[in-house]
Design a protein around this nucleic acid. Sequence first.
DNA 1: CGTACAGGTCTA
DNA 2: TATCTAGACCTGTACG
Length: 577
Amino acid sequence: MSVQHPTIIRVDQGRADVGGVREGVPMTRVQLSRLPGDLVLLTGDGEEQTVPLDDLPSLVGEREAGPGPAPRWVWDDTARWYPPLLAAGVRVTRCHDLRLARRILRRAPAVDAGLLDGDDADRWDRLGPAVATEPTLFGADDTAEHLRADVEDARQLAAIAASADGRRLGLLVAAESSGALAAAEMTHAGVPWRTDVHERLLVELLGPRPPRGARPRLLESAADDVRRLLAAPGLNPDSRPELLAALRRAGIEVDDTRASSLRAVDHEVVEPLLRYKKLAHLFQTNGWAWIDEWVSRGRFRPSYQPAGSATGRWSSNGGGALSFPMQVRSAAVADEGWVLVVADVAQLEPRVLAGMSRDTALARAARGADLYQGMVDDGAVATRQDAKLGLLGAMYGATSGESGRMVAGLTRRYPAAFGLVDEAARAGERGQVVRTLLGRGSPALGASPGRWQEGPDAPPDDLDALDRRRRAHGRFTRNFVVQGTGAEWALCWIADLRNRLWRLGGAGELDERPHLVFFLHDEVVVHAPAELADAVAAEVTEAATGAGSLLFRDFPVDFPLNVSVVASYADAGKPGT
DNA sequence: CGTACAGGTCTA
DNA sequence: TATCTAGACCTGTACG
């Protein structure tokens, strides 16, 4: 029934091990399909087997333990299958996430979409991400019931094999699937969190925890100061109209109540008002209620959604992992005898741009720890700040101002790199699809999840609006190729790192060994026994090198890391980008 | 009454 | 002469 394709990803340099695929060793694929009545259908190697859902963890655990190589588990959604396995203490080496892979293949320009048609194709297309819930073996949610993983797997493998971009798409799908494993594992393990430290911080800044619905004491006193200085006794500072009116009455002319606008005003109310806003934000987004909801058993467990944004970057739908505020990072503290190894890539996207455009001049500037300084040393720009402005302008599509002027000058110096983003922008303006290095396609012009996407009044009839829209889409596609390829680099990085950490030692479960606890675009946090700190730091660095050679093969681009070994996340050194 | 949006603040 | 990318999430307010 199942079609066997040896999906071997050749790794040309380094020993990066993205999908857990070792060179030359064909992997056995085992497809898991949910059947009615709490049953699971296992297929693969031409065999079929039906087992009760409850038996799955032990079955998977045995295959993972050996003696032979662990299979690649093929399932509809990692977020649906993996949390229960983790809860049962079972770690999986490799998988193929059919939902994520299908989204990639559906949009990939290099894939023949017809090869993805067939039984239940529309249901596969509509499959949304499983919501992270309690790690029980499936709830009442049966949206994926009856979907045959083996049938879909065969379609996807055929589509990849037939594509001119097959090697790259194969790598992308493997990396994406590994990322999904890492995401589930990070939510499972969680960031070590000292609630007592967090609460002490809250009490210090806000006062004791107030009863439900009330403001904490120091927040209320900031509000009182504002009311007094504006002579507005009943003012609710949370209400924009009220606040704006009160400011005007006091002779303060501002168009909005943003902190940056207020800072420009010379008036004694500014200080308490800014203080109020800062404290209110802390109270509302990372206060006691946040602890209640997102911290359990000493761990902060945000939920990640791999490829949640169009570019392939992860998004988050709970816990706010994407805006993990600096202010409370001091509560992220390693366990006794353990450390946090925090690593982030310096200037990821400019480096990725140098690699994908094979711009030798920019790659030369990227040699070393500071790409912007490299551009200065190269004589391309006068200052580091100019280099940064120019590069960011090129990647974001700046046309005016200081940034826009820098772009013009740098285009002559780095024609390949700047030409690549320019071409992506022009393609987007023409309404064409662009792709990342590994072949992820951008959403079509009308289909972007924007505010105007559909409805009878969708196409603006005036030409100005239409033109603005096309240019905005051009800026989007311009950024898409770089941000998306950056996301692919990061995916390869954590996929490889995840396996390196597992091999690093220990015999226990995932959270008894060095393991990933946090990932955010270009930064990772590993929780590890103190005596393994140096080894972890080395693996993090080697994984970064491996990711570079996976993406750019023989074209040399440096990806230097800032690595800190710390007790508390707040102590991690973060040199500016 | 519930939902949608606007405006704000945080992140890379 | 001008807003230069991608997100989450909170509140108050307008709307159906």
